[in-house]
């Protein structure tokens, strides 16, 4: 008999996801684990984890992890990489962690061109605390702290993370992907692979923003949530690659 589906080796054998049913975090973590397997990185990887829904990443992945305070994963990863340049170093963060409380650290890590890879899950809310307005909450979107919907008077505008990161000279790769359909999941894996490879080639900062559903806080079924990613999020946060130095090499 041929096994057509198995758990990636880089996942812990007894892992139990703490994500809500229908949440895309599980898919994203799996893609990361598959790539760590495929690129044979498990024994050489150190991950800086974040605070948010993915805070227990070290319970799912069978790799070395250091917990960073909320927003500081890119700074922590900078410390790891600068003292261990031969290691593969990545962060796995939410949009609140990466682009709100930690935006200074995230941007400056990209600006310095730190040779690390960063992954940001964008689900338009602070999920862990129960769905508050975050840096990526869409205009008009209702959250527990924007009960009348996001408006510019009270909240200003959502941030387009992948485009901002692409503007930094130290960024070697920046893309936005989604997980709402099988083709999008495949594209997401390819983008993650590139973000990993630019690090392995020493080209600079590799970044992927992953649009992700949050059925619990959006008060939707998983199917409705993926529909919302497609109909509401993607038009605001277009998918695509905003910077790719894989061919031309590092910025001078």
């Amino acid at each position: 008999m041929q096994a057509v589906f198995s758990t990636p080796k880089s996942m812990k054998e007894d892992f139990k996801f703490t994500f809500c049913p229908g949440c895309d975090h599980g898919i994203a973590v799996r893609l990361v684990a598959e790539l760590i397997d495929e690129l044979n990185l498990k024994e050489n990887t150190i991950c800086s984890t974040c605070v948010g829904c993915s805070v227990f990443l070290y319970d799912f992945l069978n790799i070395d992890c250091v917990e960073a305070p909320h927003g500081r994963a890119c700074a922590s990863a900078t410390g790891v990489k600068r003292t261990n340049p031969e290691k593969f170093v990545f962060t796995y963060q939410g949009d609140g962690d990466f682009a709100s409380i930690g935006f200074a650290e995230s941007m400056h890590t990209a600006i310095r061109g730190e040779n690390i890879s960063a992954i940001c899950i964008n689900n338009t809310t602070f999920g862990m605390t129960g769905g508050q307005l975050g840096p990526t909450t869409l205009m008009g979107q209702v959250t527990t702290t924007s009960p009348f919907g996001r408006n510019k008077e009270y909240y200003g505008y959502p941030v387009k993370i992948a485009e901002q990161i692409a503007l930094c000279d130290g960024t070697a790769f920046s893309a936005r992907v989604a997980l709402d359909t099988i083709p999008h999941i495949n594209q997401a894996k390819q983008a993650l692979k590139k973000a990993f490879e630019v690090q392995l080639k020493g080209l600079g900062f590799g970044f992927v923003e992953i649009l992700s559903s949050c059925p619990t806080n959006w008060h939707m079924t998983p199917e409705e949530a993926h529909e919302w990613v497609k109909n509401s999020m993607i038009p605001e946060f277009p998918l695509g690659t905003f910077k790719d130095l894989t061919e031309v090499g590092v910025n001078k």
């Binding site: 960073a68 700074a75 410390g79 400056h108």
Partner: peptide
């Protein structure tokens, strides 16, 4: 050896903690 001009003290100390977690003297 390494020298990082951090963007803030907040970043600097978290870089230190990350590096120290790998056993580096920082």
């Amino acid at each position: 050896r390494g020298y990082v001009s951090a963007e803030s003290e907040l970043a600097a100390i978290n870089m230190v903690v990350g590096a120290a977690a790998t056993g580096a003297k920082v």
